[in-house]
């Protein structure tokens, strides 16, 4: 694993992969949207508005997944001092924040016809909102220092502190019996939704994950380039 921590080594693998990942993301999202919006049956209680789920649930998964990968990247960067880990966490943060906003926005669009309210202060919504604040705090901290490596280190520690929230969000619907429905896909007894709805959902989830990786590689490439430019500039100043 340490071999891939070298940015050039990483780019040699990531660059050829990027078109494939992007194609996978576009294909899966197109197929998932088609199946979800036109093929899957409407819910017997919720009617057509159940289709918001095909965007809402994958983006909620991604909001958590991106934060977890950010925390793991930060931990590896702090422990083994891999600069790539800092850059990866930094490149992921805005993507994860966007997924969180999409999750909250689609959830509130769905909540208006179903629950009769745009927003309810229940456990899962509140903890996802805290997740959004953690993303915002991370992005604010990383840009608050004149020395970029200092900001990356401080923000990585914050990402690890905030990782406490991830299991709380995942299990909030099981621990507190509030308005948000409990988990129905990832549970020990098998998924509780019909395959005709499960498949579009899983295809969308693959598409969203591929989209994250594609976007992350693009952002990481520009972060690496920016770091190289900064080093060249510093070298010119000192020489």
């Amino acid at each position: 694993m340490h071999r891939f921590a070298n940015p050039n080594q990483f780019l040699r693998i990531a660059n050829p992969l990027l078109p494939w990942i992007s194609a996978l993301s576009v294909l899966c999202m197109a197929a998932g949207l088609y199946l979800g919006l036109f093929q899957a049956p409407p819910d017997y209680q919720q009617g057509e508005s159940v289709r918001i789920m095909y965007v809402h649930v994958p983006s909620a998964w991604m909001a958590l997944f991106v934060y977890a990968s950010m925390a793991i990247a930060s931990a590896t960067a702090l422990i083994w001092r891999h600069p790539l880990g800092f850059l990866m966490a930094k490149a992921s943060a805005p993507i994860g924040a966007c997924f969180t906003v999409i999750c909250l926005a689609t959830g509130s669009l769905w909540g208006k016809p179903m629950w009769g309210t745009w927003w309810e202060w229940d456990a899962r919504m509140t903890s996802v909102l805290i997740l959004l604040f953690l993303y915002v705090g991370y992005m604010a901290l990383i840009d608050a220092f004149d020395d970029p490596t200092r900001g990356q280190r401080a923000a990585s520690i914050l990402a690890l502190v905030g990782a406490v929230n991830v299991p709380i969000i995942k299990f909030s619907v099981d621990w507190w019996n509030t308005l948000h429905q409990p988990a129905s896909v990832v549970k020990l007894s098998g998924p509780a939704i019909h395959p005709s709805m499960l498949w579009p959902l899983l295809i969308m989830a693959v598409g969203f994950t591929a989209f994250y990786f594609a976007l992350m590689i693009v952002r990481l490439r520009s972060e690496i380039a920016a770091a190289k430019i900064r080093n060249i500039r510093l070298g010119q100043v000192h020489s």
Partner: peptide, 10 residues
Amino acid sequence: IGASLTLGAR
């Protein structure tokens, strides 16, 4: 934690 993370920040 917050106070130590922001030492020297703008």
